[in-house]
Design a protein around this nucleic acid. Structure first.
Lengths: 133, 133
DNA sequence: CAAAATGATACAAATGTAGTATCATTTATA
DNA sequence: TATAAATGATACTACATTTGTATCATTTTG
């Protein structure tokens, strides 16, 4: 059962790394080397983070990426959504007619409850919260 | 984000269906038709449920499968484990050196907490609980 | 103009999920 | 005792997703 894929994993690691020197500009090459992430893969990840405005890109020689959002505005759940789509464990789970009475379907209710819990916990995780202490 | 795969889904649907006439013997053919599940796929699923002693198999003509466990002993979490492996969102998630201090790694702690919650909720879902109003 | 960066995008490999097919074995019963 | 109807075991195929690679275009600095 996988909750987090590699691209989300790599993204948060890179963002945490960058957040330690907040206004510095980083190249993908440097980050890929330091964090041992495949360079071409990290480039693709950063292009997505750029489109989502979590980082800003600077083209050309001496270019690179910088954090744009405040550390407490970068939520783990948003990264998961970017790379893995919306959190929706109910619809893709058990379909019609499982429970005797659809309207009171206990399974859907339980799964929805789990989903809500996961979402609220993931919202509370931010780059800032991970760097504290 | 997928929490439940088809084989788990099909398994619980078939078990719920069987539980309505508890001591009856069912053939895969009958269940596959009624529940609109591919027959060969359901056979494979039932062979696994049989190995796990959730159902018993009877070979030969007029053979089939029967429930063996009590409805309240068939836990949703066990089905997930059988078909999707253990619930372990932490180890397969973010690896070493993400957090500044591994021992106090906030991310691991948070993920573990989510994992525990999911597990406890999934344990509380049983065939019995799904059948009662 | 060359070097060094990102932008866009196509491609490929590996893995996991979903489903099919086949032959062997068992059992009831005509 | 032969046959039909069931499961047991297992190999195979198809598809989707994840993970990663490669290449050419564009931008910017020096």
């Amino acid at each position: 059962m996988k909750l987090i894929t590699k691209n989300t994993d790599y993204a948060i690691r890179a963002l945490l790394f960058m957040a330690k020197k907040k206004d510095k500009m980083w190249t993908v090459l440097k980050l890929a080397k330091d964090l041992k992430i495949p360079k071409a893969f990290l480039r693709k990840i950063f292009q997505m983070l750029n489109k989502e405005k979590i980082i800003a890109s600077y083209k050309g020689k001496n270019g690179g990426f910088k954090l744009t959002l405040q550390e407490d505005k970068i939520l783990f759940i948003d990264l998961i959504k970017i790379f893995q789509g919306p959190i929706n464990i109910v619809d893709c789970a058990v379909r019609t007619k499982l429970c005797p009475d659809m309207k009171k379907c206990i399974l859907k209710g339980k799964l929805k409850k789990i989903e809500n819990y996961i979402a609220s916990e993931l919202k509370s995780i931010t780059i800032k919260s991970l760097l504290e202490k």
